[in-house]
Design a protein around this nucleic acid. Structure first.
Lengths: 252, 252
DNA sequence: GTGGCGGGTATAGTCAGACAAATATGATAA
DNA sequence: TTATCATATTTGTCTGACTATACCCGCCAC
C-alpha cells in the first residue's frame, strides 16, 4: 500500500493540480488558499495532523512543514491538545508576497482590492518623491527601459505587464529605503490586477503611457513634488479604470 | 549517547538562552538573528542539515521546520544539492513582526532605524487622516484610554509604553484598511525604539503627551487634514528626539 | 580545441513509526 | 461550590531509512 509516488503515481486523491516543486510548499499553498478564501474561517480548528496528512496522502513531516510555513505567515497557530487553528485576520501577513498570491488565486473581493489601492495611494506618491531625490543613473535607466518596453509591447502581453511592474518596482527601489521596497510585492499585485480587470472588461480605454512618462520625467528632473503629483494622478486613474472595468463585469 | 534531553539535560553545546516554547521556533530565532545581524551574509550557504542539526543537538526534523520558517519569511532558500543559502536582502520580509524583532535583538543599525522612521512618516499621517474619517466610537474610546494610561504611567514604565503602542495601533486599525493595519508591527517597533533610545540617552526632554493629544483631538473632531498634520509633527519630533539620544550615545 | 552529453554524488525532500510534552477536560474529593 | 488530580488528545521531537534533484566533471563527438 504505502510507497505510492516514486514515479508516475496513480490517482488516489486530489492534489493533482500538479505544480510547485516542493511538496510542503504545495500543501501550504493549498491550505493557504483555503484559508484566505474563507473556506476555513478564523477560529476554525484544522483536523489533527495524522488525519490531515493521511487524507492528503503525504507524510506527517511534510504536512507539519507546510503548517510551519502558514504559521510563519501568521495564518495559523498550533498548540498541543488544542490543535491548529486559523488565526484572526489581524495576524495575517497580508503584505507577504505568497499570501497575496494566494489571495489573488481565488478572485479577491472588490473590497480587498480597494484597500490595496488605498495603500498604493499612500505609499507610491511618497516613494516617487523620495526617488526623485535619490535615484541614481542606473535606476533611471532601468525605469526608462521599462517604459520603452511597456510602450512597445503594450499591456496586452505578459512582457509588457512585467515591464510595468518593473517600473513601479524600480521607483520603490530608488527610494533607497529597504522596508519600503518590500512593499513592492503588494503594489505589484495591485498593478497586476488593474491590468487583468481592465483586460477582462475589454475596456482598454485610456493609454497608460502618458501618466507613466510624466512620473518618469519628474523623477529624472529631480523634482520631488512634481513626481508625487504625477504618481498620485497615475494611481487615481488606474483605480478609476479598474472600478469601471469591475462595474462592467458584475459576476464572472 | 542519544536521548539527551528528556529531563534536566546536561550541558553539551550552547542553546541555553532558554526561552520560547517550541524548539523549531527557538532555532529559527537563533538563525534568524544570526542572519539579520550579518553573521551570515546573503549568498552564504548554511552547512548541511545533518551537520547543522547535530551541532545544535536537535533532530533533523526540528531543524528543517526552523528552516521552513525562515524560508517563509524570505530569509533563506533551499535547493537539493546546492544547500540552503541566505537570500538577498531584497527578499527579506522586513516588515514581518518576527523578523523585525530579530533585527532589534542585536542592536539595529542607525540607518535601518532611520528607514523605519521614513516609512512611519509616510504611513502614519495618511493613516491618521483616514482614521479621522472612519473611526467609530469604540476605537475613539480606546485611543483616549490609551493616552490616559500613557499619561498616568509615563513612558518610563512598560505599561506606559504599551499604551503608546496601543494608541498608534488603534489609529491604524481605525483606517479600516487591513493591509495598512499589518504595518502596525513595523511602526510599533519604531515606536518602541524611540522610547528605548530616549531612555538610554537619559534625555526625556520633551513631554510627548501634547503631540499625542493633538492627534487624538483631530481624529475625534473628524478633521482629516488636521489629523495628518498633527501626526506628521508627532513623528518628526519623535525622530528628532531619537536622533539626539543616539548622538549622545555614540557606541554603547 | 570546443561543445554538448551523461553519469556520479552531495544535498534537500519525503517517508514511517515511535516516544515525549503539554494541556484541556472531566472525574473526584474536600 | 471549589480545588485537585487523572486522563486522553494533540502537537512536538526524535530516529533512520530511502528518494529526487541538480550541480559538477569527465567523456565523447565534432
Amino acid at each position: 500500500m504505502t510507497k505510492t509516488r516514486g514515479a508516475g503515481h496513480g490517482a488516489e486523491t486530489e492534489r493533482e493540480e500538479g505544480f510547485s516543486g516542493r511538496l510542503h510548499g504545495s500543501i501550504a499553498r493549498t491550505l493557504g488558499i483555503a484559508i484566505v478564501s474563507g473556506q476555513h474561517q478564523p477560529g476554525d480548528v484544522l483536523k489533527n495532523e495524522i488525519d490531515a496528512s493521511e487524507q492528503l496522502n503525504v507524510s506527517r513531516s511534510a504536512y507539519r512543514e507546510a503548517i510551519r510555513i502558514l504559521a510563519a505567515k501568521g495564518l495559523v497557530e498550533s498548540r498541543p491538545k488544542t490543535g491548529t487553528r486559523v488565526s484572526s485576520r489581524a495576524r495575517w501577513s497580508l503584505l507577504d508576497p505568497e499570501v497575496l498570491a494566494w489571495f489573488f488565486e481565488s478572485e479577491p473581493s472588490e473590497a480587498f482590492l480597494q484597500e490595496l489601492y488605498e495603500l498604493r495611494m499612500i505609499v507610491e506618491p511618497a516613494a516617487a518623491a523620495l526617488a526623485a531625490e535619490r535615484r541614481n543613473d542606473a535606476q533611471l535607466e532601468r525605469m526608462r527601459a521599462a517604459l520603452v518596453q511597456m510602450q512597445h509591447e503594450t499591456l496586452a502581453t505578459e512582457a509588457g505587464q512585467a515591464a510595468d511592474r518593473d517600473f513601479h518596482d524600480t521607483v520603490l527601489e530608488a527610494t533607497g529605503n529597504a522596508p519600503l521596497f518590500t512593499l513592492s510585492s503588494s503594489i505589484g499585485a495591485a498593478v497586476r490586477w488593474t491590468t487583468i480587470f481592465k483586460q477582462r472588461g475589454r475596456a482598454l480605454a485610456r493609454d497608460p503611457m502618458p501618466d507613466h512618462w510624466k512620473v518618469f520625467d519628474a523623477i529624472a528632473a529631480a523634482r520631488p513634488d512634481q513626481a508625487r503629483q504625477a504618481m498620485e494622478r497615475l494611481v487615481v486613474l488606474a483605480l478609476e479604470d479598474t472600478r469601471a472595468a469591475i462595474a462592467r463585469t458584475p459576476n464572472p
